[in-house]
Amino acid sequence: MNIFMREMKAYRKSLFIWSVGILFLIGASMAKYAGLSTTGQSMNEILTAMPKSLQAIMGTGALDISKVSGYFGVLYIYLLLMATMHAAMLGATIIAKEERDKTAEFLFVKPVSRTSIICAKLSVAVVNIVMLNIVAGISSLYLVGTYSEGESVKADIILAMSAMLILQLLFLTIGSAIAAISKKPKLAVAISTGILLMTYILSIAIDLNKKLTLLKYLTPFKYFEAKIVMNGGGLERKFIILSLSIVIIFSLITFVFYRKKDLQV
């Protein structure tokens, strides 16, 4: 419990900054929407006139951005990117930092097993990503609701946020597993964010090239897409199962590898 409290305190500031970032992203985007919605259909026409590749990169694709649900769908991709980035970095640092900051010789000679240390740290990380998710969820519900003009988006937003939480968990455990395996603790964060960006780019590539569709299993960004979720498509069960299996596998990897690890001090 002491490690849990200590880590909660250590990540207070970082969580606050990320929350402000998320809040700003949603606030600024919705303010833009206020301007955009008055131009009516014309914005949509400009977007559809753009090359398909550009649409894919911007994440608009099949979304009708003149409607608030469609607009939020585009915003959601950036929210997702930010939240998963936070999760991957958090997962990697919370595990790797004792070695990176050379405090391992303090913590790991105390009468606690490595398993319980990792348990406490991962719990803190989960609490942090859930809190960031709640911040994103509440501010989306509130700010999007302001512009919804009768369009019912609440259920879709809640669904999108649950999908986001699953992906946050997924990247959190990827980050922690990499930190547990990596022999160079300083590289753990770089590798985890690198993997995140690669899977994101892959998801864009799949949008651009139909032949790559089968690769969608390799990139979590394809598991729960805004254009499906926001259009009432819900979350696909097979991807929920796939995501949660990945979460379990990477958590196990974190525990197993960290227990056998030679700590760098």
């Binding site: 010789e105 000679v109 009468p111």
Partner: peptide, 15 residues
């Protein structure tokens, strides 16, 4: 570890 006290050669703590 309950009964061990350890002083490392280089001390690093949470800054």
């Amino acid at each position: 570890a309950k009964e061990i006290g350890y002083l490392p050669s280089e001390v690093f703590y949470y800054d």
